[in-house]
């Protein structure tokens, strides 16, 4: 099983110990992809996509779990810290691929994305270029976020609003909880 998993990730530059791939993983782009120890890529219903363009870096930290339909796209750098959990069909990308205004086929600059340890993305959540999600941030299902989020904050809804779920990580500048 483990040997088959490593075979499925043959296009990755580095694959850690005890990595498990269930079903299919779609690895494309030719960039640098590093998969840490004890990572689970669960593509048995829908493939997981790992996409790093030439020159880009995609890092999946130790113990991360990526459910089916998850898509990680790096044009420059996408980094997942240890223990991140990305639920079904969530997406992380460091480039918008098209500008809203101007020539639509001219690719805009990339903005690296970082998810620190223990971040959770809900189903169909979308993490946009430039996002930095600190430790233990929870992004709710369907939330679209592209900015810095402080440790311990949960974001839900559209537009996203904060709910504090980890009081031990609270500091004075955490946004107020909405009634």
């Amino acid at each position: 099983m483990r040997a088959l998993s490593r075979l499925k990730l043959w296009r990755c530059a580095k694959v850690g110990a005890r990595v498990e791939v269930r079903g299919h993983v779609y690895v494309i782009g030719g960039g640098l992809i590093e998969v840490g120890d004890d990572v689970l890529l669960d593509g048995h219903l829908v493939p997981v996509e790992l996409h790093a363009e030439p020159g880009a870096v995609l890092v999946i930290g130790h113990g991360c779990v990526l459910e089916g339909g998850v898509s990680l796209e790096a044009q420059e750098r996408v980094e997942l810290g240890p223990g991140c959990r990305l639920r079904a069909f969530s997406k992380v990308m460091d480039n918008h691929f098209h500008p809203v205004v101007g020539a639509r086929h001219v690719r805009p600059p990339s903005k690296p994305v970082k998810l620190e340890a223990g971040v959770e993305l809900g189903e169909r959540a979308i993490v946009l270029p430039g996002a930095w999600l600190e430790t233990n941030v929870r992004i709710g299902p369907g939330v679209v976020i592209g900015r810095h989020v402080k440790a311990g904050v949960s974001l839900v809804g559209s537009p996203p609003h904060a709910e504090l779920h980890d009081a031990s990580l609270r500091d004075a500048s955490v946004p107020e909880v909405r009634p």
């Binding site: 918008h96 691929f97 098209h98 500008p99 809203v100 205004v101 805009p108 600059p109 946009l128």
Partner: peptide
């Protein structure tokens, strides 16, 4: 307005 997207690349 589309002008509320950042200059230089933002799909919103």
């Amino acid at each position: 307005s589309q002008q509320l997207s950042s200059p230089g690349g933002d799909h919103g």
